[in-house]
């Protein structure tokens, strides 16, 4: 393929920590789609907004380093975490706004032979979701589907950092970024489930600070999706996955109802439609059972 996509790939921390199935499934899906991943293995944590809260310049410089490492490869950057997307976009917006601030931050990188340059060769940093729709293309994706998710009812769950604030996240140029998950679900042959929580907060950022508030948010959204008839949720954010899946049994206690809804990472949902097996996509590592999803799929042979 002449227009093969090759990206500098930043997997983030959580995809290699408590959601290892995300990193693994991304590798499988990238191969199936023909996306070449050049992993930024020397890059650091995005700070998740927490480092910026402590010292904004520190967060900006740490992410300038990641961008500079990506620019060294001559490729655009791809991430697989809504939180990385939001935290990095925030720093990039400040770095891009002012050349003297950028020079000040680059001063800290000069000893490492690194430099972040604005707009060099059209450098972008996109979540896999954005890359899939904007660069890979939905029609091309639909053409790769070997096991359509027929009859599978999927609820989208975006993660705050990838939908707000709109101005910072490039919605001026790409106004449909907040309906891409729906578009991908349809492209894979699934049905979109409309429910209240799709663009709300999973509660994860306050899980250590106010567990009750945090789990109430997660539990409410999962419950709403179940009531709307969802077979599963899909999310491009591993931090949302922690609250929606890993903490789901605890969230069920807080909202005082039975839950038990599979929550898939975006690459897992894509992988299933491309014919990958649930086990190789790491779905057995989930806390909320993915059995129902697998049964629905089994009805349609790959």
């Amino acid at each position: 393929m002449s227009d093969q996509i090759k990206v500098a790939y930043w997997p983030g921390c959580v995809s290699r920590g408590f959601t290892p199935e995300l990193h693994g499934s991304m590798a499988i899906v990238a191969e199936k789609l023909g996306i070449e991943l050049v992993e930024l293995d020397r890059a650091n944590c995005c700070g998740a907004g927490v480092i910026a809260e402590h010292n904004q310049e520190l967060a900006d410089t740490l992410n300038a380093r990641t961008f500079a490492l990506a620019q060294e490869t001559g490729l655009s950057m791809m991430n697989i975490c809504s939180t990385c997307q939001g935290a990095q976009s925030e720093c990039q917006q400040r770095l891009d706004a002012d050349s003297s601030y950028r020079a000040h931050v680059n001063e800290a990188l000069s000893g490492q032979g690194l430099k972040y340059e604005k707009d060099v060769n059209g450098f972008t940093n996109k979540n896999f979701l954005w890359l899939l729709v904007e660069d890979y293309g939905l029609d091309k994706l639909a053409a790769q589907v070997v096991r359509p998710l027929s009859g599978m009812r999927v609820g989208p769950f975006y993660g705050c950092y990838i939908v707000r604030p709109k101005e910072r996240l490039g919605y001026g140029e790409h106004p449909d970024r907040d309906i891409y998950l729906e578009q991908v679900i349809v492209a894979l042959g699934g049905e979109v489930v409309e429910y209240d929580g799709a663009r709300k907060c999973c509660g994860f950022p306050v899980i250590t600070m106010n567990r009750e508030t945090s789990l109430k948010q997660a539990g409410t959204h999962v419950g709403d999706a179940i009531d709307a008839g969802a077979d599963c949720l899909v999310t491009p954010c591993p931090l949302c996955h922690l609250n929606l899946d890993m903490q789901q049994p605890e969230a069920a206690k807080v909202v005082n109802r039975d839950l038990g809804l599979a929550v898939l990472h975006l690459p897992q949902l894509v992988g299933l439609a491309l014919g990958a097996e649930p086990k190789e996509l790491g779905m057995s590592k989930h806390i909320a059972s993915t059995g129902w999803v697998e049964e629905r799929l089994a009805a349609v042979p790959a």
Partner: peptide, 18 residues
Amino acid sequence: EVQAIYKHAEEHNEEFNL
């Protein structure tokens, strides 16, 4: 390299208010 960044940023701790 990360630690060098910490040193630089902690010395300055600049807030760029957009």
